[in-house]
């Protein structure tokens, strides 16, 4: 299985990730390719040097997610300068808006500050009175989409655990195969609802965990077993 991991951190994480995640998972048959976004990179500097451009950072992250097969996002909380009014929490929440299904881990040496920031989104009595209930629900849903929190830098364990989950592993493997082996082949039979779709599009259905995506996976197992049984008879 081969997949990508998006790491958002202002410090260099290449060596650390290679040592503590990549090598470990490679030994277990999972090839995980890190993609680094460093928010303090000069390209995110605002033209007047007054700070970093959050929109540009988020936009870059979204582009990467859309173009690469990213199955997990890990982000430091402190990713900007002292003067910038945003943290990794803001980036993660922005990514949840467009990619709610991707697994997300937030880590920080000062995780308490991150949690405080997240808790500030929780509905208070005053907030419930002032804010539209739909906004509150959306905020809650967003929080619920941050899958894990890590205190300190040690996010590697959580990443490894995620990929050691067989369900995830199987599903991710299937998606990889569909999206990478013959992405443009058009599916014509066996599962009528997907007739006319490319394998890559079917991969996205599974990735997005749609009902038809789930049904397709069950159908796939049934037909594969039937095929294998038939071969046995031969």
């Amino acid at each position: 299985m081969r997949t990508h991991c998006l790491i958002i951190d202002d410090d260099n994480q290449e060596e650390y990730f290679n040592t503590h995640v990549q090598r470990v998972l490679r030994a277990e048959g999972v090839e995980i390719v890190p993609v680094f976004v460093k928010p303090t990179d000069r390209k995110y500097l605002k033209s007047d040097h007054s700070g970093l451009d959050l929109d540009a950072i988020v936009s870059d992250c979204k582009n990467l997610i859309d173009t690469l097969d990213i199955s997990i996002i890990v982000s430091d909380c402190k990713v900007a300068t002292r003067k910038d009014p945003f943290t990794g929490v803001d980036i993660i929440l922005a990514l949840i808006e467009t990619h709610p299904k991707i697994y997300k881990i937030l880590y920080s040496a000062t995780i308490k500050d991150a949690i405080k920031q997240i808790l500030s989104l929780l509905p208070t009595k005053a907030k419930m009175e002032d804010t539209d209930v739909n906004t509150v629900i959306r905020d809650l849903a967003k929080i619920a989409k941050i899958n894990d929190f890590v205190s300190g830098k040690g996010y590697e364990q959580k990443v490894i655990e995620y990929f050691r989950n067989p369900e995830i592993c199987y599903k991710q493997h299937l998606i990889n195969v569909l999206k990478e082996c013959a992405p443009d082949v058009i599916f014509k039979s066996c599962y009528p609802p997907f007739n006319g779709k490319t394998l890559k599009e079917i991969g996205r259905e599974i990735e997005s965990d749609t009902p038809q995506g789930r049904e397709f996976q069950e159908e796939l197992i049934r037909q594969t077993l039937a095929y294998m049984v038939a071969i046995n008879h031969e």
Binding site: D10, T40, L45, H49, S50, G51, L52, A80, T81, R82, K83
Partner: peptide, 11 residues
């Protein structure tokens, strides 16, 4: 001291 460790936009 806190400022020293943090990143800051500088010339």
């Amino acid at each position: 001291i806190k400022k020293l460790a943090d990143k800051e936009i500088i010339n």
